[in-house]
Design a protein around this nucleic acid. Structure first.
Lengths: 350, 350
DNA sequence: TTGTATGCGTTATCAT
DNA sequence: ATGATAACGCATACAA
């Protein structure tokens, strides 16, 4: 017992501590810790009972901060996304949180709006909180130059989508996905495909653009860099881009959008024009978010489960570090056909 | 100096500690702490420089766990939502995280699926992590019976939507909101309104049902408990309910859904029937999520900003505890007119 | 102007 | 079978 306790924080812990439990049970904190952590090989039943009852009576809950500090493990992971308001990422987030919650982990969520400096600051915050693991979703920016110098400490990292970081990833083949979209448009008769890309420094967009270029070649479609329009992955950005293209007389008979929001924006721009979808212009999106089957006309898109991507990343992160494990998990995608590319509606029923 | 250090954790801290910085700068940890925390009133510039440089050289970052344990403040808040995959809640989450991030706070996200036991376990996890604050979104279940006995410690709490907890809330007037919807349907000529409610033990649904009942009376519409259908706040649930209602010959000429997903489900069920919207059946939703203006026909709905609700809750939480502050912040709602209730399209221009 | 000592709440080591 | 004690990394009261 200290004669003159120099405490500077409020003196009465509002939630019981192990010491309080110990006093009530008439044992030492060591014994309390042992019982509560199941190290009870040598502890007689009656002692256990006394401790357990005291703990219950006080509503004792271990302070995770102290445990984390002592054990060097926080049971917390960080999730870095561009924007949780985007359907893609809230699906990912749900997958991550489901797995984390089952495993007793907490998930700290951060939005970056794809701004490198902001991403850096989020990562710093998460690392300061000593998260056990970190998941990046959304693809890297500028080859992740703002992150390569990072000291990751003991924090494990998993990325979802293309990144330039030396960590395991969960991916879909972005290039092949868009190539599939292009080939489909070629099959329904398109010759000049407008390409609604993301920003040039987004890795996802780069990969998808590879797929576009490759497939345009393979299918013998018209190559024309004028047809590639860079912008944000948003409805507004795409609507503006397509409207402008129309205004300046750009000719195209198909659109491949690197993101469903872009595709929907395109649909809106076209709806305001004299062109009809899919007959004058067929449209394919990518990601197949939930809204895509609700819009009019329903959107053909490249489908894969963002929820599963999130789950997989979290499982990867939480699994014991196996050196043997494959460092890349490639998830399948498929083309989901809907009205926006269905040029033979007349010949079908319904 | 200890002769026999009994360390049990990996010995070399992978990210520098204050002690490491102190050694490199040739000062004590106290001085390091002072400099890094700006308590530099009495510290000569050259000492500061040495410390700062050592810290930078080592890439020193304070361990938040240790700081939190010592200061009793974690710079972290918890967010409890039914499902981050729901448009309502990811907007809320974005608002909360934006405010938190600006203030240097982290946000731990948890999904409950509106399961009381799960909510309890999420709350326990968050409290164990000693979050400084907690935000509940989505409205209480069963009068929050599973939470009333909770020991909240020093954690501050703010709720979004109706709850039975003694904490400040950010609200919209759910009853008035639905009443507005009902009156609007009455004005466009509806007499029998199908009501797509949530579960009876959801407080949001109870409040909205109050509004429905009240407004039906006020507007002199037909009262019939057969018209009230309880279910989940999801498209599938609503589609099934409406389809079944149609099958068993229930008659109605308007639908008020307590949630836009329900309204959209209703639209789908009606599309598959012989009834047209809005002429045979007019439909109003609630919450005005982003998809609602994209579906066909576009959905009339009750609008308010979930993003702002989230921001307000977080600001409330992070603001200094003013006893004078009002304990309820009521946010305005308005009716957004779209095609699903527009029965005079013919007389209007496009 | 700076350092020593103490405690935040917990777990692990060693001793009894 | 149980307890005293060090240590996790940091911030503060107090001494010097």
């Amino acid at each position: 017992m200290v004669a003159n306790p120099r405490r500077t924080t409020p003196s009465v812990p509002l939630v019981g501590t192990a010491k309080a439990v110990a006093e009530r049970a008439g044992v030492s904190v060591t014994t309390v810790s042992r019982v509560l952590n199941g190290h009870v090989d040598v502890i007689p039943q009656h002692t256990q009972d006394r401790v357990l009852e005291a703990a219950r009576a006080l509503g004792y809950r271990p302070n995770s901060l102290a445990v984390a500090l002592r054990k060097g493990v926080t049971q917390t992971i960080g999730l870095v996304v561009p924007d949780i308001g985007d359907a893609y990422f809230h699906q990912v987030a749900r997958g991550v949180e489901d797995v984390a919650q089952s495993a007793g982990y907490g998930v700290i969520l951060t939005n970056t709006d794809r701004i490198p400096e902001r991403e850096r600051s989020c990562v710093n915050m998460l690392l300061d909180k000593r998260v056990d693991g970190l998941i990046f979703a959304g693809g890297g920016i500028d080859n992740d130059r703002h992150l390569v110098e990072q000291a990751w400490g003991t924090t494990r990292v998993v990325t979802i989508g293309p990144h330039s970081l030396p960590f395991p990833s969960v991916l879909v083949d972005d290039s092949a996905a868009i190539a599939t979209a292009v080939h489909h448009l070629a099959e329904v008769g398109c010759r000049r495909l407008l390409c609604l890309a993301g920003q040039p420094n987004w890795l996802v967009s780069q990969r998808r653009l590879d797929g576009y270029r490759r497939a345009v070649l393979e299918a013998g479609l018209e190559e024309d860099d004028e047809l590639i329009l860079y912008g944000e992955f948003s409805r507004g950005s795409a609507e503006t881009r397509v409207r402008d293209a129309l205004t300046r007389g750009l000719v195209f008979d198909g659109i491949v959008a690197f993101n469903d929001y872009c595709a929907i924006g395109a649909l809106q721009a076209l709806a305001a024009s004299e062109l009809t979808v899919p007959d004058d212009v067929a449209v394919v999106g990518c990601d197949d978010i939930a809204v895509s089957e609700l819009v009019q006309p329903a959107l053909t898109s490249i489908s894969f489960s963002q929820y599963e991507l999130g789950r997989a990343a979290a499982e990867f992160l939480l699994a014991p570090p196996t050196d043997a494990a494959e460092n890349v998990v490639m998830y399948p995608h498929r083309l989901t056909l809907r009205e926006s590319t269905d040029r033979h509606r007349a010949t079908r029923q319904k």
